[in-house]
Design a binder for these strands. Structure first.
Length: 195
DNA sequence: CATGGGATTGACT
DNA sequence: GTCAATCCCATGC
């Protein structure tokens, strides 16, 4: 897998969110293709950076091309890719993956938490689910996405020009009408509700 | 120092 | 459809 460089992320967050569809995420031997993303920007009330620079959002305002991982609802670790120039708080939330390699390990991790066998389409179809399946934790916060342990790579030929549908973001209470969610059309690994 | 909310999920009705 | 679980940290007294 060829990793994306820092210049890819140092651009408007909406462009990066769209172009990350079809890219790969890899972590310690497990990987998948990104099929759903959401964009967040400091000008946007739903973004953590909206309130300004705090200890929590330090990564968000830092170097583009790094991982911003934070805990949601006290339980889930959510994976984001920091975008735009240093000093601008913006990131793309990775919301769903199509499993590629290491699916047995994903199924084992998800099954252990579910208390039953996990179906293939529920391994990574949600931002909390994909971090569970890939074993990504808050320790990955601040990591370089071109160097690892979490690495985002360029799309394969099959995913070079995916058909994309745009919709409104999920699970937020502010700025709920902005169409900043991007999904691969017709892919069953996209989380619900589908656009 | 106490409190409350959140970019979610899974179990249950 | 409803609801609890559970942690980081922003805010306010």
């Amino acid at each position: 897998m060829s990793a994306l460089g820092g210049a890819f992320y140092e651009r408007p967050v909406l462009e990066v969110a769209r172009e990350l569809i079809g890219c790969t995420v890899e972590h310690r031997g497990v990987s998948g293709v990104i099929v759903e993303t959401e964009a967040y920007h400091e000008s946007d009330p739903a973004c953590h950076a909206y309130a300004g620079l705090t200890p929590r959002t330090r990564t968000l305002f830092g170097d583009p091309g790094r991982a911003y991982v934070y805990r949601s609802y006290g339980i889930h670790a959510l994976l984001n890719a920091v975008c735009e120039p240093e000093g601008v708080g913006a990131a793309v939330l990775i919301r769903a993956l199509a499993p590629l390699t290491g699916t047995e390990q994903m199924a084992a991790r998800r099954g252990a938490l579910l208390g039953r066998a996990a179906r293939e389409h529920e391994l990574c179809s949600g931002p909390g689910r994909l971090t569970q399946a890939m074993g990504i934790t808050l320790e990955e916060d601040g990591g370089d996405l071109s160097a690892g342990p979490v690495v985002i790579g360029v799309p394969s030929e099959e995913w070079s020009a995916p058909e994309i549908v745009q919709g409104t973001r999920i699970g937020i209470t502010r700025a709920i009408d902005l169409p900043w969610r991007f999904c691969a059309v017709g892919n069953r690994h996209v989380s619900r509700p589908r656009p």
